[in-house]
Each structure stands twice: as structure tokens, then as C-alpha cells.
């Protein structure tokens, strides 16, 4: 009895570990390739190699001229940080309004907001670009950050509305009894009770902004403004010579911040999504 449960447990674990390794293989391959000499990456695609080198990291870091990959990290961090802070403040305010306040045509505005989630990004692309061009914001981080100050990420608003609706109204009422106004209910009651969903929002905003390629290449023209995803593509020319070694090396480095964020906050992600799901 005892041995058979032990056996089945061991078997389960062996299976899970093997399966995990299979899932991890592409990442492991990338890490190992980043340490291989460029000419061996595709000709000997095995994970294990006889020759190891740091050449790719050196070449990759020194992108062109005086531009290093460090600059791309700085730019990416700046944009992501602004996006996270802005989304936290403005999306939670908008969500609070939808969840708690009463104002005319509320249902219509809510539907409009949901519709922006469904609107394909390509449909709004050119008008948006034209607006930013007229404002003279092209080739700066403004088009990538200012919209976040206006609660444009409807997905997060929706997520928060669901969460806020689950917070008992009685708490608001007792706060009103104690003399709280609308804004104080927001800061003193709603926000402190919503930490899981706020963390979920921060993590996803960070990851999505960090990984975003298209809007960044659209609005950033010169290399000194480039972010990590653009920097990685700088090495790739599908028709000519690509420096795959450098791409892999820099990809490994650019995975570090994002995995760190994920591992530190992962239990909150689950909590945030689970609680919004149940109560919503």
C-alpha cells in the first residue's frame, strides 16, 4: 500500500519533469545557442556543444557604434514603468466609476468601452498615427505612454470592474456614515481591498508593454529611442545576413527582467484572476 502510493507518486513526478523539460526545450536551446560560435548554431543544433564562447554576448551588447543594448533596456524600462503606474491609477478610477458611481448613459459608455476591446487595432492604426504626427509626438515615447494616462486599456478596466463589484456595498455605506466622500471611498475602501487585481494589472501591463513590438516600431524612428524588442530585430534581416548568435544572447538577457517579475508576483496573478472570476 505504502510502496504503491510512493511508486505512483514517483511516476507522476518523473512524468511531469520529463514533460516540463520538453516544454522548456526551445528556451534551453536558445540559452545553449547563445553560447555557441555563430557558425555552429544551425549546423549542429544539439543543445550540447564542445565549444563555448561569450562572443555573442559581447557582439550583441555592442549593437552599432556607441549604442549598446543597455540603452534599449533603459528605454523599455522607462516606457513599461510609466505604463504600469498610469494604468494602475487611471484604469482603477475608470473602473470605480463604472462599478460604483451613477451617471447618465452609464450602460452606453460601458458598452463603448467594451467595444474598444473588440475593435481590431489595425482599423485605428492610421488615424492614430496621423494624430500623433500632427501633435509632433513621433519618435518620442509620448504616443506609447500618454494614452495610458487616459485609461485606454479597456481590458484592465473590465477586469477591475468585475473585482470592484465583488466588494460588499455595505462597506461603502458605512464609510459614508463615517463621512467619506466619493473620492475617499475610492482611496480608503476600494483600493486597499483590491490589491490582487491591481497587482495582476501591473504584471500584465508590464509584460505586454515589454513585449510589444508593433506600436514601438511604428512610433520610434531612431536607434537612440529603440526598445528591447526593436533592438532584438535589429540583428535580423530575413533576406540577408542575420546575427542569430547576438539575437539569442540578447534574448536571454531580455528574458531576465520579465521572468523575475513573473516569479516574484506569480501567486498574486493567480489570486487576482481567480477572485475576479468567482465573484464576478
Amino acid at each position: 500500500m505504502d510502496t504503491s502510493t510512493k511508486l505512483s507518486r514517483t511516476l507522476t513526478h518523473v512524468f511531469i519533469i520529463l514533460f516540463g523539460l520538453i516544454m522548456l526545450y526551445p528556451v534551453l536551446w536558445m540559452v545553449s545557442s547563445s553560447f555557441k560560435p555563430e557558425s555552429l548554431i544551425f549546423s549542429t543544433p544539439s543543445i550540447f556543444s564542445d565549444t563555448w564562447t561569450l562572443e555573442n554576448y559581447k557582439n550583441g551588447w555592442q549593437v552599432v557604434r556607441d549604442v549598446t543594448f543597455g540603452l534599449f533596456f533603459k528605454n523599455s524600462f522607462l516606457i513599461s514603468a510609466i505604463a504600469v503606474v498610469a494604468n494602475l491609477i487611471t484604469c482603477s478610477m475608470a473602473a470605480y466609476a463604472f462599478a460604483r458611481l451613477r451617471f447618465p448613459l452609464k450602460k452606453l459608455w460601458f458598452a463603448c468601452m467594451l467595444m474598444t476591446i473588440m475593435l481590431p487595432a489595425h482599423a485605428t492604426l492610421i488615424p492614430q498615427y496621423t494624430i500623433f504626427h500632427e501633435l509632433g509626438w513621433i519618435n518620442s515615447i509620448l504616443p506609447l505612454t500618454v494614452p495610458k494616462l487616459l485609461a485606454t486599456d479597456a481590458f484592465f478596466i473590465f477586469l477591475m470592474v468585475q473585482f470592484f463589484r465583488g466588494i460588499p456595498k455595505e462597506l461603502d455605506e458605512s464609510a459614508i456614515m463615517d463621512g467619506c466622500g466619493i473620492f475617499q471611498i475610492y482611496t480608503k475602501i476600494i483600493l486597499p481591498l483590491s490589491v490582487p487585481v491591481l497587482i495582476t494589472t501591473s504584471i500584465f501591463t508590464f509584460i505586454w508593454t515589454w513585449d510589444d513590438f508593433f506600436s514601438q516600431i511604428l512610433y520610434l524612428n531612431t536607434v537612440d529611442q529603440f526598445t528591447v524588442p526593436l533592438g532584438l530585430r535589429l540583428f535580423l534581416d530575413s533576406q540577408g545576413q542575420s546575427s542569430w548568435g547576438s539575437v539569442f544572447a540578447m534574448s536571454v538577457i531580455s528574458l531576465v527582467p520579465i521572468t523575475t517579475v513573473f516569479f516574484i508576483f506569480q501567486r498574486y496573478i493567480v489570486e487576482g484572476i481567480a477572485t475576479t472570476g468567482i465573484k464576478g
Binding site: 492610421i126 498615427y129 504626427h133 513590438f213 516600431i217 511604428l218 530585430r233 533576406q239
Partner: peptide, 30 residues
């Protein structure tokens, strides 16, 4: 002012710039 990138997204970006009347002066084509 050099505006260079990898191939990915190059023409998407160029098309948007052309539509908005904000294309570079000298452009590489294939």
C-alpha cells in the same frame, strides 16, 4: 537622421508613414 531596423515591421511602418504623410526622405526598397 538614420532610421534603420530589421526587416520585420519595416514595410508596415513605412505604409503607415506614407498614409500619414510622414515618410523618410530616402527610403530603401526591394
Amino acid at each position: 537622421e538614420p532610421e534603420y531596423s530589421g526587416f520585420d515591421g519595416y514595410f508596415d511602418k513605412l505604409n503607415t508613414q506614407l498614409a500619414a504623410g510622414n515618410a523618410p526622405d530616402v527610403i530603401q526598397f526591394g
